[in-house]
Computed example of a mutant assay.
Amino acid sequence: MPEGLNPQLASNGISEQRVKPLITVVIPAYNYAASVARSAQSILGQRDDRTELLIIDDGSTDATPEVINALHLGYPEQFRSIRRKNGGLASVRNLGIREATADWLVFLDADDEFVQGALAKLLEHIQSNAHSRLVIGEHISVSEEGRRRRHTIGQIPETGFERVKAYLIDKTLGLSNGACAMHRDVFAPGGYPEQFRNSEDLPVFAQTLARYPVSTLAEPLLLLYKHGDSLRHHVGHGQAVGTQVVDEVFSRLPAEMQSLREDFYAQRCLSLFRSAYLAKDYEAAKRYYSAALRHDWRLLFKTSYTRKAVRIWLGKT
């Protein structure tokens, strides 16, 4: 994990923490002036002394600093904030881990919000499940049109191997930042890889599922807002990371899980294919689909992907 603090930090907020909280909620914010107040207020409206809120402004160039300052005026000494030179989401999360007072962390995106009343349920769950090191909660996705869909939790496999397989390969175990709480112990194998601007959570979630006890909270914790205009941005960073994330993930996993590597490589290529297809970057989509087939020809039987690939090669997109 990166050491030391960025020398160009500026911080505001609580001058002295009197009681060690149980959870620190970290909100990374880069140019989220339009939504960071909503995100922060979803925590401030239900927190008590067991919860610390930390907002990290990652060098925003919009009005995010002014919005955070206004929040300080409206909620004096109720949260801390840090402003720093832009370094990317992974480095912000690593800074949040170092700066957090609590042993449990929740990373809440600045355009999402916590469900009203969910914080108390999460605190109660943590206190009742002392063995757990990862709490997986439910979330509600909100479309641009305002439609809501609740995402429930299925059966969580008991062994680390099966959990990692379900997460990386089978895609039957989905994790969302903001709907998960992580004990700081899970970052011992490594923090968020700062060389990545996308998919930085994959290695951390994988190492956690592989090595640490997991519990589930069958309650919606997060309102996750979908944004159509973020797709091309996501695809650009995703292609920059490419398949490098495969090496990063498996460098953190035990020897007995290395047998999953080839399957994950193929799955990663399919994921990049799908993102490129949706963004209408058909040349990139061809490359990723071809790479996936080279690693596992059986992917031809995944008809939803094969149909899209055929449309590209026939020029019917």
Rank of each mutant, 00 (worst) to 15 (best):
A292Y: 06
A120E: 03
Q17S: 08
A33F: 11
E138W: 00
A276Y: 02
S143H: 06
K280A: 14
G242M: 04
I55C: 03
T172E: 11
Y30P: 00
T51Y: 05
R268S: 11
T159M: 08
S271P: 06
L173M: 09
A120K: 10
Y305I: 02
H131M: 13
V36M: 07
L300M: 11
A70P: 01
E77C: 14
L253E: 00
A210I: 04
R252E: 05
V246A: 04
R133L: 10
K20L: 15
V164A: 09
R298L: 14
G174F: 09
L221P: 06
H233F: 14
I169R: 10
L73R: 14
A206H: 04
S259W: 07
K226H: 13
I97H: 02
L44D: 00
W297Y: 13
L123Y: 07
D263M: 12
D112W: 05
S35Q: 06
T61G: 09
Q127C: 12
D229K: 11
F79R: 03
T306F: 15
Q155P: 02
G137W: 01
K226W: 13
A285N: 00
V235H: 07
V106Q: 00
L122K: 03
F301V: 01
R184K: 15
N198L: 07
T51F: 08
L253M: 05
A120G: 04
H234D: 10
Y265S: 15
K308C: 06
R268C: 15
E144M: 11
R232A: 15
L71F: 08
G4F: 13
T159A: 09
G88W: 01
Q17T: 10
R93M: 09
I169E: 06
R80N: 14
E77P: 00
S259H: 10
E219G: 08
K316E: 01
W104M: 07
E77Y: 08
H227L: 14
Q8T: 10
I169D: 04
T317Q: 10
L95F: 05
E138T: 03
S176A: 14
T64N: 03
G146R: 09
R47M: 15
C180S: 11
N6D: 15
A10Y: 14
L293D: 02
R311T: 01
A292T: 02
D296L: 07
T216P: 04
G154S: 04
L134V: 12
D109P: 00
I156K: 08
V204T: 10
L293N: 02
R147S: 11
G174D: 05
D103G: 07
T159R: 00
R287N: 08
E219K: 07
D263A: 15
F205C: 01
L95A: 13
V67C: 05
W297F: 12
N86H: 13
T208V: 10
